[in-house]
Amino acid sequence: MSLENELKELIIKDLKLVDITPEEIKDDDFLFGDEGIGLDSLDAVELVVLLQKHYQVETKDLEESREVFTSVKTLADYVRSKTGAA
């Protein structure tokens, strides 16, 4: 399974999202705001913990976080850059 698909499954499971499946999330969909899958700031809290728990990756640089939390693709790229995952 690609890292993108793994992240989609984790996001749905850990954030307890309903009415949405991993297949419905495109890699480039915005995670936050009305145009994307509609996560909000409380979901961002879960994302920070998700990255730490599953990939031991921290998001302490706020400017970097703005970019990282854009889409599943940017999340996956960030995890790869920190862990060397495929």
């Binding site: 936050f32 700031s41 976080s65």
Partner: peptide
């Protein structure tokens, strides 16, 4: 994110 990423 309303400061919540930093808060976390």
């Amino acid at each position: 994110m309303g400061g919540l990423v930093e808060a976390t």
